[in-house]
Design a protein around this nucleic acid. Structure first.
Lengths: 343, 343
DNA sequence: TTGAAAGCGCTAACAT
DNA sequence: ATGTTAGCGCTTTCAA
């Protein structure tokens, strides 16, 4: 049979209350007994029972706070679906979820949003935000106070005691390059690269991975133009059309961001007489339609829904597990999708 | 606050015991009260609390029985990892798992294995087996007795009251064809198709999807040869080499099964002077190595680990939910993987 | 600093 | 057919 608190209590000659307190680092227990109990728990292979804990926690259930820059951004739809699903699943395990949505990546707005979550009494945080100094500081503060903080989708180097749930952007770029190499064997590539937001590390890393892999594979290529779409449809369309106009030799397009893809689509369609190979990133409704219409050749997707699901699962783990135990990153897969995927 | 049994009891003017019995269809409660209680539960949006139920069930926890033809088949390694993970996660929710492994797809052996699981007292079943009449009958028997039966990886049409966890094989073939079309634009394809086992529906469906999609896309192709590898490395190698010998014009290979891929690899390497485009299925160690070595161009994978995880999650749902509620299929994704995925 | 005990939601055994 | 109650593993008050 599995080891319970009661077993430990009996074995140690103390009460269950004391064992519980020792294992949860409540500071009302003597260092000596605490040590003895922990050692015993270790050697007997004690694993806390989630059901018991959940039931007990039911009275004052703990809340996870999530920040998403998801307003007017269909990219986050699937992620929210994943969050909802996990929310439903973990509710009866004593967990609640508070979601705050922002429009875009404004640092001040994000700081306010985080404070809002704190004020709501959240006990753990999943943040999809940017690598800004003040944000970093806020994260480290929360972390120092003992709150688990998880970075969602966009990693922020230089932050403490957190884990990351999101894709490997560099590899995403490498995979795009690998596909291109397979599909255009030998042909010289005249490239247009469409970048997204400057504040988003991932978009940059994708381009780096993309170029690194093209180079490593000795693909014959040249970056003819590189434009910034600012994750905006109109800007993306204009910038792309101008690039096509100035550099009609462009025969390949790599778009390193998911947002603004409608603009890309419009630009390609307007220049349809010239056949170009087009790679996009991330799966939203528009992208699917463009792939189905053979405007985009393939998409490198991230498992967005899974990210939403996992960030809750991970934080639940943090809250349930004994304090200080490591919770690893969840690096999701880069999925290549082509037309049959969407039909 | 969430609705509990106690709330329902109070609202109905009966005891919690009666409510519990009514909701779980124990036949010791009058049809009348039962109906009333169920209606109220519905309208109040009662959702049973997993933690409470799990804790209560802890005394006599229910066991899930799994049958896998996994002996000497690395394809199932990841699936077993997924099963282990889910097993660990659901243990403290009152669930146990019994795994019976077989070598290959022998009907008699599988029937014996299923009986073994029944004798062990399993309350739900996940079966990776074949579409044989006796097997179907056995499944329908179990189902009729009220046991949830889930078909894992290989669906069996004509079975009752079950759900399926596995890939869309037809689409897998379509995707292979789509990729081929993208990568070999315009070139005429002289095809070798390597089939797997006759008893496995999936392999057949892959080939069907593959040919259907090539045709739909008006790809210029011809199936020069089609061999059976019987999921065996030696046979696959010999058959492939002979096909290469008899039809040196073969410039494309589609292997619709995961097992026997070492044999395919050996055959390709032995004929390396002729460049051929090679598509394989399913991800095992050997496949990864062959992709890294540029012997295989890309692989269409199924989410094997996820299948292992989900079959337990689904069956847990079946056991926990009120009897008769529908549990949908889990159709996993077809993942295209190329070299950067494995590096 | 520790022990004792209540209670979280649910099921099953026992009592009526 | 229905009510009552013990107990699953855990946390957290309340006493000591």
């Amino acid at each position: 049979m599995t080891v319970t608190l009661k077993d430990l209590a009996k074995a140690c000659g103390v009460s269950v209350g004391t064992v519980s307190r020792a294992l949860n680092d409540k500071n009302e227990v003597s260092a000596e007994t605490s040590e003895k109990i922990k050692q015993l728990a270790q050697s007997l292979g004690y694993v806390p029972n989630r059901a018991g804990r959940a039931l007990s926690a039911q009275k004052n259930l703990s809340c996870i706070g999530i920040l998403l820059p998801s307003i007017n951004s269909p990219f986050f739809d699937d992620m929210k679906r994943g969050i909802d699903e996990a929310h439903r699943e973990f509710k009866d395990l004593g967990l609640d979820v508070a979601l705050v949505e922002e429009e875009g990546w404004d640092v001040d707005a994000h700081l306010v949003a985080i404070d809002k979550l704190v004020q709501r009494g959240c006990k753990a945080f999943a943040l999809c935000t940017v690598a800004d100094e003040r944000i970093k500081q806020k994260i480290n503060e929360l972390s120092a106070e003992g709150y688990p903080v998880l970075l969602l989708n966009n990693n922020i180097p230089g932050t403490q005691g957190v884990c990351f749930v999101g894709p490997d952007y560099f590899k995403s770029g490498q995979i795009a390059a690998g596909m291109l190499d397979k599909c255009t064997q030998g042909k010289r590539l005249e490239l247009l690269i469409v970048m997204g937001l400057k504040v988003h590390n991932g978009h940059k890393q994708r381009v780096e991975g993309f170029l690194a892999e093209l180079t490593r594979r000795k693909v014959d290529f040249q970056v003819v133009a590189s434009v910034e779409g600012h994750d905006n449809d109109i800007i993306t369309q204009q910038a792309t059309m101008q690039a096509f106009y100035e550099h009609p030799e462009i025969n390949t397009v790599y778009m390193a961001t998911g947002s603004g893809v409608s603009g890309l689509g419009a630009a390609i369609i307007a220049n349809r007489e010239q056949k170009r190979f087009v790679i996009a990133c991330d799966e939203i409704y528009t992208t699917r339609e463009l792939v189905k219409g053979d405007i985009i050749d393939f998409v490198i997707c991230q498992e967005t829904k899974m990210q939403g699901y996992q960030c809750i699962k991970k934080l639940h783990e943090c809250l349930v597990k004994p304090r200080g135990s490591v919770v690893g990153d969840y690096i999701c897969d880069n999925l290549i999708k082509i037309r049959p995927h969407f039909e």
